[in-house]
Design a protein around this nucleic acid. Structure first.
Length: 274
DNA sequence: ACGAGGTCCTGCGAGC
DNA sequence: TGCTCGCAGGACCTCG
Protein backbone atom coordinates (compact mmCIF):
# COMPACT_ATOMS: atom_id res chain seq x y z
CA UNK A 1 0.00 0.00 0.00
CA UNK A 2 2.67 2.47 -0.81
CA UNK A 3 1.10 5.92 -0.87
CA UNK A 4 2.88 9.24 -1.09
CA UNK A 5 4.87 8.97 2.17
CA UNK A 6 6.01 5.43 1.45
CA UNK A 7 7.11 6.21 -2.11
CA UNK A 8 8.83 9.39 -0.96
CA UNK A 9 10.69 7.37 1.67
CA UNK A 10 11.73 4.71 -0.82
CA UNK A 11 12.93 7.35 -3.29
CA UNK A 12 14.92 9.14 -0.60
CA UNK A 13 16.38 5.80 0.43
CA UNK A 14 17.71 4.85 -2.99
CA UNK A 15 18.49 8.28 -4.44
CA UNK A 16 21.92 8.85 -2.82
CA UNK A 17 23.11 5.47 -4.00
CA UNK A 18 21.81 5.83 -7.56
CA UNK A 19 22.40 9.36 -8.74
CA UNK A 20 25.42 9.56 -11.03
CA UNK A 21 25.70 5.79 -11.25
CA UNK A 22 25.73 3.81 -14.48
CA UNK A 23 23.75 0.60 -14.93
CA UNK A 24 25.95 -2.27 -16.05
CA UNK A 25 23.29 -4.87 -16.59
CA UNK A 26 19.57 -5.24 -15.96
CA UNK A 27 17.35 -8.31 -15.68
CA UNK A 28 13.57 -8.74 -15.53
CA UNK A 29 11.91 -11.84 -14.08
CA UNK A 30 8.34 -11.19 -15.30
CA UNK A 31 6.96 -9.13 -18.16
CA UNK A 32 3.42 -8.80 -16.81
CA UNK A 33 4.35 -5.66 -14.89
CA UNK A 34 5.41 -3.81 -18.04
CA UNK A 35 3.09 -1.21 -19.58
CA UNK A 36 3.75 0.11 -23.05
CA UNK A 37 7.25 -1.29 -23.20
CA UNK A 38 8.74 -4.66 -24.05
CA UNK A 39 11.41 -6.45 -22.08
CA UNK A 40 14.12 -5.99 -24.75
CA UNK A 41 13.36 -2.31 -25.10
CA UNK A 42 13.41 -1.67 -21.35
CA UNK A 43 16.59 -3.63 -20.74
CA UNK A 44 18.27 -1.95 -23.69
CA UNK A 45 17.31 1.49 -22.37
CA UNK A 46 18.63 0.69 -18.90
CA UNK A 47 21.88 -0.99 -19.89
CA UNK A 48 24.71 1.53 -19.98
CA UNK A 49 22.44 4.37 -18.90
CA UNK A 50 23.48 6.78 -16.18
CA UNK A 51 20.98 7.74 -13.48
CA UNK A 52 20.67 11.53 -13.41
CA UNK A 53 18.09 11.74 -10.64
CA UNK A 54 15.48 9.74 -8.75
CA UNK A 55 12.31 11.59 -7.84
CA UNK A 56 8.71 10.97 -6.84
CA UNK A 57 5.55 11.99 -8.66
CA UNK A 58 2.24 11.03 -7.00
CA UNK A 59 2.72 7.42 -5.78
CA UNK A 60 5.37 6.62 -8.36
CA UNK A 61 9.14 6.59 -8.37
CA UNK A 62 10.82 8.22 -11.38
CA UNK A 63 14.34 7.30 -12.43
CA UNK A 64 15.68 10.02 -14.72
CA UNK A 65 17.92 8.73 -17.49
CA UNK A 66 19.40 10.82 -20.28
CA UNK A 67 16.81 9.80 -22.87
CA UNK A 68 14.06 8.33 -20.71
CA UNK A 69 12.00 8.57 -17.60
CA UNK A 70 11.74 5.14 -16.04
CA UNK A 71 8.55 5.18 -13.95
CA UNK A 72 8.00 2.60 -11.21
CA UNK A 73 4.51 2.26 -9.74
CA UNK A 74 4.77 0.11 -6.61
CA UNK A 75 1.04 -0.62 -6.54
CA UNK A 76 0.31 -2.72 -3.49
CA UNK A 77 3.46 -4.60 -2.66
CA UNK A 78 6.15 -2.99 -4.77
CA UNK A 79 9.42 -1.79 -3.23
CA UNK A 80 12.28 0.31 -4.57
CA UNK A 81 15.44 -0.96 -2.90
CA UNK A 82 19.17 -0.52 -3.04
CA UNK A 83 21.65 -3.15 -1.88
CA UNK A 84 25.36 -2.64 -1.48
CA UNK A 85 25.83 -6.38 -0.98
CA UNK A 86 24.62 -9.56 -2.65
CA UNK A 87 20.91 -10.28 -2.14
CA UNK A 88 19.87 -13.14 0.11
CA UNK A 89 17.64 -15.81 -1.40
CA UNK A 90 14.44 -14.40 0.19
CA UNK A 91 15.33 -10.88 -1.01
CA UNK A 92 15.95 -12.13 -4.52
CA UNK A 93 12.77 -14.20 -4.68
CA UNK A 94 10.38 -11.38 -5.64
CA UNK A 95 12.96 -9.09 -7.20
CA UNK A 96 11.22 -8.45 -10.52
CA UNK A 97 13.75 -5.96 -11.87
CA UNK A 98 17.42 -5.99 -10.92
CA UNK A 99 19.95 -3.45 -12.11
CA UNK A 100 23.63 -3.98 -11.32
CA UNK A 101 25.58 -0.77 -11.01
CA UNK A 102 29.06 0.03 -12.16
CA UNK A 103 31.35 0.07 -9.14
CA UNK A 104 29.10 -2.32 -7.18
CA UNK A 105 25.65 -2.32 -5.67
CA UNK A 106 22.27 -3.17 -7.08
CA UNK A 107 18.98 -1.36 -7.62
CA UNK A 108 15.96 -3.65 -7.22
CA UNK A 109 12.24 -3.37 -7.83
CA UNK A 110 10.73 -6.04 -5.62
CA UNK A 111 7.02 -6.82 -5.89
CA UNK A 112 5.34 -9.86 -4.37
CA UNK A 113 1.91 -9.54 -5.98
CA UNK A 114 3.07 -7.71 -9.08
CA UNK A 115 0.19 -5.26 -9.04
CA UNK A 116 2.92 -2.73 -9.62
CA UNK A 117 3.85 -1.55 -13.10
CA UNK A 118 6.89 -0.24 -14.93
CA UNK A 119 6.76 2.37 -17.68
CA UNK A 120 9.46 3.75 -19.94
CA UNK A 121 8.55 7.21 -21.18
CA UNK A 122 10.26 9.65 -23.47
CA UNK A 123 10.00 13.36 -22.72
CA UNK A 124 6.73 13.72 -24.58
CA UNK A 125 5.22 10.64 -22.96
CA UNK A 126 6.31 11.90 -19.58
CA UNK A 127 4.66 15.27 -20.11
CA UNK A 128 1.35 13.63 -21.00
CA UNK A 129 1.62 11.27 -18.06
CA UNK A 130 2.44 14.08 -15.65
CA UNK A 131 -0.34 16.30 -17.00
CA UNK A 132 -2.98 13.63 -16.35
CA UNK A 133 -2.13 13.60 -12.65
CA UNK A 134 -3.54 16.06 -10.13
CA UNK A 135 -1.48 18.46 -8.03
CA UNK A 136 0.97 17.37 -5.37
CA UNK A 137 -0.60 17.86 -1.92
CA UNK A 138 2.71 18.95 -0.37
CA UNK A 139 3.50 21.47 -3.11
CA UNK A 140 3.99 24.76 -1.21
CA UNK A 141 2.27 26.52 -4.10
CA UNK A 142 -0.94 24.50 -3.68
CA UNK A 143 -3.68 26.61 -2.14
CA UNK A 144 -6.74 25.49 -0.16
CA UNK A 145 -8.88 26.98 -2.92
CA UNK A 146 -7.27 24.90 -5.61
CA UNK A 147 -7.44 21.81 -3.41
CA UNK A 148 -11.15 22.33 -2.91
CA UNK A 149 -11.78 23.11 -6.55
CA UNK A 150 -10.26 19.80 -7.54
CA UNK A 151 -12.51 17.82 -5.25
CA UNK A 152 -15.76 19.71 -4.83
CA UNK A 153 -16.94 19.18 -8.40
CA UNK A 154 -17.51 15.49 -7.76
CA UNK A 155 -20.68 13.80 -6.57
CA UNK A 156 -18.60 10.85 -5.43
CA UNK A 157 -18.06 10.12 -1.78
CA UNK A 158 -15.43 12.52 -0.49
CA UNK A 159 -13.18 9.60 0.38
CA UNK A 160 -13.23 8.28 -3.16
CA UNK A 161 -12.63 11.74 -4.62
CA UNK A 162 -9.69 12.22 -2.26
CA UNK A 163 -8.14 9.00 -3.58
CA UNK A 164 -8.73 9.97 -7.24
CA UNK A 165 -5.25 10.72 -8.62
CA UNK A 166 -6.67 13.11 -11.22
CA UNK A 167 -7.99 15.38 -8.46
CA UNK A 168 -5.16 15.24 -5.94
CA UNK A 169 -2.29 12.75 -5.98
CA UNK A 170 -0.62 10.62 -3.39
CA UNK A 171 -3.52 9.81 -1.08
CA UNK A 172 -4.56 6.16 -0.87
CA UNK A 173 -6.73 4.24 1.53
CA UNK A 174 -4.70 4.64 4.70
CA UNK A 175 -4.19 8.39 4.55
CA UNK A 176 -7.69 9.08 3.19
CA UNK A 177 -9.15 7.42 6.27
CA UNK A 178 -6.81 9.30 8.57
CA UNK A 179 -7.22 12.73 6.95
CA UNK A 180 -11.03 12.49 6.97
CA UNK A 181 -10.97 11.54 10.63
CA UNK A 182 -8.88 14.55 11.62
CA UNK A 183 -10.96 16.83 9.40
CA UNK A 184 -14.15 15.54 11.05
CA UNK A 185 -15.76 14.58 7.75
CA UNK A 186 -18.02 11.57 7.13
CA UNK A 187 -16.16 9.59 4.41
CA UNK A 188 -19.41 8.79 2.59
CA UNK A 189 -20.47 12.41 2.21
CA UNK A 190 -20.65 13.46 -1.45
CA UNK A 191 -17.68 15.66 -2.28
CA UNK A 192 -19.91 18.40 -3.67
CA UNK A 193 -21.76 18.64 -0.37
CA UNK A 194 -18.74 19.00 1.91
CA UNK A 195 -18.70 22.51 3.35
CA UNK A 196 -15.92 24.97 2.45
CA UNK A 197 -14.71 25.14 6.04
CA UNK A 198 -14.47 21.35 6.08
CA UNK A 199 -12.35 21.48 2.94
CA UNK A 200 -10.11 23.98 4.67
CA UNK A 201 -9.58 21.49 7.48
CA UNK A 202 -9.16 18.59 5.09
CA UNK A 203 -6.50 20.47 3.15
CA UNK A 204 -4.44 21.18 6.24
CA UNK A 205 -4.94 17.74 7.80
CA UNK A 206 -4.04 15.93 4.59
CA UNK A 207 -0.80 17.86 4.37
CA UNK A 208 -0.02 17.47 8.04
CA UNK A 209 -0.59 13.71 8.01
CA UNK A 210 1.40 13.11 4.84
CA UNK A 211 4.30 15.13 6.24
CA UNK A 212 4.14 13.31 9.57
CA UNK A 213 4.08 9.96 7.78
CA UNK A 214 7.17 10.92 5.77
CA UNK A 215 8.88 11.84 9.06
CA UNK A 216 7.97 8.36 10.35
CA UNK A 217 9.25 6.79 7.09
CA UNK A 218 5.82 5.50 6.15
CA UNK A 219 3.31 2.95 7.41
CA UNK A 220 4.36 -0.72 7.50
CA UNK A 221 1.79 -3.48 7.91
CA UNK A 222 3.47 -6.21 5.95
CA UNK A 223 5.35 -5.67 2.71
CA UNK A 224 6.38 -2.03 2.70
CA UNK A 225 10.01 -1.23 3.49
CA UNK A 226 12.12 1.88 3.08
CA UNK A 227 14.69 2.05 0.29
CA UNK A 228 17.21 0.54 2.67
CA UNK A 229 14.96 -2.30 3.83
CA UNK A 230 13.74 -0.91 7.15
CA UNK A 231 10.06 -0.82 8.19
CA UNK A 232 8.30 2.51 8.70
CA UNK A 233 6.64 3.46 11.96
CA UNK A 234 3.57 5.56 11.15
CA UNK A 235 1.31 2.57 11.89
CA UNK A 236 1.89 3.47 15.55
CA UNK A 237 0.20 6.83 15.01
CA UNK A 238 -2.89 5.75 13.10
CA UNK A 239 -6.22 6.91 14.49
CA UNK A 240 -8.68 4.83 12.46
CA UNK A 241 -7.09 2.68 9.76
CA UNK A 242 -6.93 -1.00 10.83
CA UNK A 243 -8.77 -0.04 14.05
CA UNK A 244 -12.35 -1.06 13.21
CA UNK A 245 -14.17 -2.11 16.40
CA UNK A 246 -11.63 -0.39 18.62
CA UNK A 247 -12.39 2.77 20.60
CA UNK A 248 -11.89 6.17 18.99
CA UNK A 249 -8.72 7.69 20.43
CA UNK A 250 -10.54 11.00 20.81
CA UNK A 251 -14.02 10.18 22.13
CA UNK A 252 -14.01 6.46 22.89
CA UNK A 253 -16.82 5.60 20.47
CA UNK A 254 -16.38 2.22 18.81
CA UNK A 255 -14.97 2.82 15.34
CA UNK A 256 -17.16 1.68 12.46
CA UNK A 257 -15.99 -0.12 9.33
CA UNK A 258 -17.61 -0.41 5.92
CA UNK A 259 -16.80 -1.55 2.40
CA UNK A 260 -19.52 0.65 0.90
CA UNK A 261 -17.11 3.16 -0.65
CA UNK A 262 -15.20 1.84 -3.66
CA UNK A 263 -15.02 -1.65 -2.10
CA UNK A 264 -12.17 -0.42 0.10
CA UNK A 265 -12.20 -0.76 3.84
CA UNK A 266 -13.29 2.53 5.35
CA UNK A 267 -12.95 3.06 9.10
CA UNK A 268 -14.44 6.08 10.82
CA UNK A 269 -15.91 7.47 14.01
CA UNK A 270 -19.66 8.14 13.89
CA UNK A 271 -19.31 10.79 16.53
CA UNK A 272 -16.20 12.67 15.37
CA UNK A 273 -17.04 12.55 11.66
CA UNK A 274 -20.35 13.96 10.45
C1' DA B 1 -18.40 13.33 -18.97
C1' DC B 2 -18.88 10.80 -15.35
C1' DG B 3 -19.42 6.93 -12.27
C1' DA B 4 -19.79 2.02 -11.15
C1' DG B 5 -17.67 -2.15 -11.26
C1' DG B 6 -14.32 -5.68 -13.00
C1' DT B 7 -9.37 -7.11 -13.54
C1' DC B 8 -4.70 -7.95 -12.49
C1' DC B 9 -1.55 -10.63 -8.92
C1' DT B 10 -0.14 -13.74 -4.73
C1' DG B 11 0.47 -14.27 0.37
C1' DC B 12 -2.05 -14.78 4.27
C1' DG B 13 -5.52 -15.89 7.62
C1' DA B 14 -10.00 -17.89 8.59
C1' DG B 15 -12.77 -21.75 8.44
C1' DC B 16 -13.80 -26.54 7.68
C1' DT C 1 -2.82 -31.12 8.77
C1' DG C 2 -4.14 -29.54 4.49
C1' DC C 3 -7.28 -27.64 1.70
C1' DT C 4 -10.31 -23.76 -0.26
C1' DC C 5 -11.80 -19.26 -0.22
C1' DG C 6 -11.98 -14.38 0.48
C1' DC C 7 -9.41 -10.41 1.07
C1' DA C 8 -5.82 -6.85 0.61
C1' DG C 9 -5.85 -2.37 -3.29
C1' DG C 10 -3.51 1.23 -7.14
C1' DA C 11 -4.09 1.89 -11.74
C1' DC C 12 -6.50 1.03 -15.68
C1' DC C 13 -10.20 -0.69 -18.40
C1' DT C 14 -15.07 -1.36 -20.08
C1' DC C 15 -19.76 -0.51 -19.86
C1' DG C 16 -23.94 2.18 -19.10
Amino acid sequence: MPELPEVETMVRGVRPALVGRTILQATLSHTDILRGVTRPKLLQALTGATVRDVTRRAKHGVVHLDAWRFVLQPGMTGNLLYYDRPLTAPEAKYAVLRARLEGGGEFVFRDIRRIGTLLLLNERGWRAYDAALGPEPLDPALTPERFRAGLAGSRQAIKKALMDQRRIVGVGNIYANEALFFAGIDPSKPANRVRPESYERLFHETRRILAAAIDAEGTTFRDYRTGTGQPGSFQLELMVYEREGEPCRVCGTTLAGTHAIDARITVFCHRCQR
